[in-house]
Write a protein that binds this DNA or RNA. Structure first.
Length: 848
RNA sequence: GCCCUCGUGGUGAAAUUGGUAGACACAAAGGACUUAAAAUCCUUGCCAUUUAUGGAGUGCCAGUUCGAGUCUGGCCGAGGGCACCA
């Protein structure tokens, strides 16, 4: 017998699969379809362990579904636009396209070596013209439907690099590249009107039964629906302002009104343009706004105006109007009515500026004299000090009742507000999908005619120019449409747009007419199982859901409006972190174990500091390169390990020993395979072991099938080990060759989603003529005739009796009386109650 | 601050949903084979004088139950999400 040579076996099967085209997917209406999709990778250069885990999970599912007879589509593509390409190209004086395509081809080879059951004929790359052409068409369609518009918005502006920065590129208020202090700048940008679908996006979550609850909760909070009331406050003062509108969820606390606060960007601020003190205040506000933490603990500051607001329910009460740093312009009306007693933020503000704090809600258990002291009270209770509103229950009666009164008086109106803001899609960058728009000399917008699409990204641009390289590419920027001069839009689309519809493109990846073919998406969509990292819980998944709804908007051909029926979010791959004596990160390759301590290789003096296990990242150097691992141990061993140690939804620790163990296990399995083969060919005698093998196999079919359905992939690996242990124990005994062949073949099929090359090789080696399909358990063979009955006395386990299935209570009692162990406890005691659970246990209650 | 999730051996984790806690694996210790090492195989796993036997035991404290890792209430701890959303 030869050693198991994973290299030749894996290469052989990968080639076979490719040649025979088993993973090609075509519409077949006689079969039920299954669309399995993993989040496509960004082509950064090499695949990492996170990819290995993500795609292994998807592959196990795809292969299982195929074996079950589903018509599976399992495609792969590349999220190929984005900044890293532009940065890498700039650093190495390369073309982003070349850099990207080179990475794609490297990573594709790496993925192929994992033995994934991918239909590569459907491969797409978002940076190809064939892809982004359709995206531009969609953009124009959404524009026509009124779902795309232009508006001025603040951006992070790097004055040195003359470019817009994403939030994560702003570090301590400075540009990550230039180190210049980042400014807030208003730019005209394109927006998708996602907020129009707020309610629909919220309602849709209820239908997503196969999504993790966690993700749905996150999206729900992000959409942030709140029910309340818009109130128009009359004002008095030396400004030509008669009224200020506020949104509130607590109109019932109106009698506790003590100030009104405005955003510094509120339209009223126009009267303060020449007020130096106000301008100082405004710049003070923008300073505190950089980090999230600063906002959270940041002090509440205000700027008092001469305006006074009148309480609509109590016109004799007039309160001051402030500008305040905590009021956001893009929520509600950019104005807040302040009730310090029942809102902590208002409370803090009132304390600072010595404003009234009037209690108008008491908790149920307090009396009428209850007063808010050290902190605001925002819980339920009863209204007090509120004249005609007194005694209303908070919040169930009070809110609606107050709104009714306000509506009657025509001062207020029921309103629903969402936190979700429109999606700004403009990026001042080169390596993205061009926006198919143009401007005439007066700045008027027009669309690029559809017949002129795609608007191709120009080549040979100067990436080292200041700002967006497209801005200085004049021969591209200046165009003539219908004999008139125009300037192209030089912003490109956010790359999240590319990933918002790629799942549709896979259904019709070769269709040049349009982004997809109706009949093809009707067959394949929605994605039955989508698999990826939880870090995309909000943006990518919400944008994709929006995109579906936007494409289906005013289009009755659309039969579904949720792209992903099932979602699975897998955990990260973690590894310990290491630092040398100077606190520089060290990679696992740079250290060695001496005794039980780590040292830097070739340096036996300085101990290496071992840090906590964290998600693998280049910056911390705690990465393991999948390429080396696959080369040394083979794809099946890596797959086995990456699945084995933790449930797929949780983080997994990388462990060299664990990896080694998986590798060795396959070697042992190969030895066992050869023993089995010998039995199949040489032995034909009935035995007890044959029977128990049959039983075991049928039980295992049930276990593995259930564990696959429940995504308990770590348990499947344990099941594989269990199977090995079981067969390895009985293989030396007499077993009928025909029985073992029949069962072993089923077992190999059960193994094949996890270790496909190994299983395929062994199956072929059996030379069986039977069809390879997912086995079904024979119910008659699953149940053991004998069962371990637990004998409890007063609830404590005292003995285990192996007796026949379905034994009656009386017969079992007879056996118990014969048993030494249990008798020890029963001697001289009387049993006053017996709890008998069929085929499981018996609990005898005795007097002590 | 608000919301969500999770606490099981030295470690990663199982547990048919209320019925034998610790499957499977890693690590460790002891043993077998070997001149030796590696590899391989076997045993152990917390406490009590033992491969027998008993006890404690699933973050802590109560409760429901014949029976709780699983259900209920309270507390403690860890991780994640949101960030002044009116």
């Amino acid at each position: 017998m030869e050693r198991y040579n994973f290299k030749t076996v894996e290469e052989k099967w990968q080639e076979k699969w490719q040649k025979s085209g088993v993973f090609r997917s075509k519409i077949d209406r006689t079969k039920e379809k299954f669309y399995c999709l993993e989040m496509f990778p960004y082509p950064s250069g090499k695949i990492h362990m996170g990819h290995v885990r993500n795609y292994t999970i998807g592959d196990v599912l795809s292969r299982y579904k195929s074996l079950q007879g589903f018509n599976v589509m399992h495609p792969m593509g590349w999220d190929a636009f984005g900044m890293p390409a532009e940065n890498a190209a700039r650093e190495n004086s390369l073309d982003p396209k070349e850099w990207t395509n080179k990475n794609i081809s490297t990573m594709k080879d790496q993925l192929k070596k994992l033995g994934l059951s991918i239909d590569w004929e459907r491969e797409i790359s978002t940076c190809s013209e064939e892809y982004y052409k359709h995206q531009q068409i969609f953009f124009l369609e959404l524009y026509e439907k009124g779902l795309v518009y232009r508006k001025e918005n603040y951006v992070n502006w790097d004055p040195v690099d003359q470019t817009v920065l994403a939030n994560e590129q702003v570090i301590d208020g400075k540009g990550w590249r230039s180190g210049a202090v980042v400014e807030r700048k208003k730019l005209n940008q394109w927006f998708f009107n996602i907020s129009k679908f707020s309610q629909e996006l919220l309602d849709g979550l209820d239908d997503l039964k196969k999504w993790p609850n966690k993700v749905k909760v996150m999206q729900k909070n992000w959409i942030g629906k709140s029910f309340g009331c818009e109130i128009a406050f009359k004002t008095e003062g030396d400004l030509p302002v008669k009224e200020i509108k506020c949104f509130t969820t607590r109109p019932d606390t109106l009698f506790g009104f003590s100030f009104l606060a405005l955003s510094v960007d509120h339209e009223i601020s126009k009267y303060f343009l020449n007020d130096k003190k106000f301008q100082e205040f405004k710049s003070e506000c923008s300073k505190t706004g950089t980090t999230e933490e600063a906002i959270a603990i940041g002090e509440k500051i205000g700027f008092k105006t001469n305006l006074q607001a009148i309480n609509p329910l109590n016109p004799s009460q007039k309160v001051p109007v402030f500008f305040a740093n905590f009021v956001l312009m893009d929520y509600g009306f950019g104005a807040v009515f302040g009730c310090p007693a029942h809102d902590q933020r208002d409370f803090d503000f009132a304390k600072k500026y010595g404003l009234d704090i009037k209690t108008v809600v008491r908790p149920e258990e307090e009396n009428e004299n209850f007063e808010v002291k050290d902190e605001a009270y925002s819980g339920p209770g009863v209204l007090i000090n509120s004249e005609f509103l007194n005694k209303l229950k908070v919040p169930e009666e009070s809110v609606l009742k107050t709104i009714d009164i306000l509506e009657e008086k025509k001062i207020g109106q029921k309103q629903i507000n969402f936190r979700l803001k429109d999606w700004g899609v403009s990026r001042q960058r080169y390596w993205g999908c061009p926006i198919p728009m143009a401007y005439d000399e007066h700045g008027n917008v027009r669309t690029i005619p559809k017949e002129n699409l795609p608007v191709k990204l120009p080549e040979n641009v100067n990436l080292n120019s200041k700002g967006n390289p497209l801005d200085s590419k004049l021969d591209w920027k200046n165009i003539i449409i219908d004999g008139k001069k125009y300037i192209r839009e030089t912003d490109t689309l956010d790359t999240f747009v590319c990933s918002s519809w790629y799942y549709l493109r896979f259904c019709s990846s070769d269709n040049s007419e349009y982004g997809f073919k109706q009949e093809e998406i009707d067959y394949w969509m929605p994605v039955d199982q989508y698999i990826g990292g939880v870090e995309h819980a909000i943006l990518h998944l919400l944008y994709s859901r929006f995109f579906m709804k936007a494409l289906g908007y005013k289009n009755e051909n659309f039969k579904f409006n949720e792209p992903f029926e099932g979602l699975f979010t897998q955990g990260m791959v973690c590894h310990e972190t290491y630092k040398d004596q100077n606190n520089n990160w060290l990679s696992p390759d740079e250290i060695e174990l001496v005794g039980d301590q780590f040292f830097k290789k070739g340096d036996s003096k300085h101990l290496v500091k071992v840090g906590p296990s964290e998600s693998m990242s280049k910056s911390k150097k705690n990465v393991i390169d999948p390429e080396n691992i696959i080369k040394n141990y083979g794809a099946d061993a890596v797959r086995l390990f990456i699945l084995s140690d933790s449930p797929p939804e949780k983080d997994v620790q990388w462990s060299d020993q664990g990896m080694m163990a998986s590798y060795k296990f396959l070697q042992k399995l190969w030895i066992l395979h050869n023993k089995i083969k010998e039995k199949i060919e040489n032995e034909f005698s009935e035995s007890k072991e044959s029977e128990s093998l049959e039983k075991f196999t049928n039980q295992m079919i049930n276990k593995i099938t259930n564990n696959l359905e429940g995504f308990n992939y770590n348990v499947i690996i344990a099941n594989i080990y269990e199977t090995y242990n079981f067969i390895n124990k009985i293989i030396e005994k007499k077993i009928d060759g025909r029985i073992i062949k029949n069962n072993y073949q089923k077992i190999l099929i059960l193994f094949s989603p996890a270790i496909p090359h190994f299983a395929a090789e062994c199956l072929e080696d059996l030379k069986s003529k039977e069809e390879i399909k997912w086995p079904k358990a024979n119910k008659n063979l699953i149940e053991d005739d004998k069962i371990d009955y637990v004998i409890q006395i007063n609830g404590k386990k005292r003995a285990i009796l192996n007796e026949s299935r379905d034994i009656e209570q009386d017969s079992l009692m007879d056996k118990i009386k014969l048993n030494k162990l249990s008798n020890k406890y029963l001697k001289g005691k009387s049993i006053y109650k017996i709890i008998f659970v069929k085929n499981r246990l018996i609990n005898l209650l005795i007097n002590e």
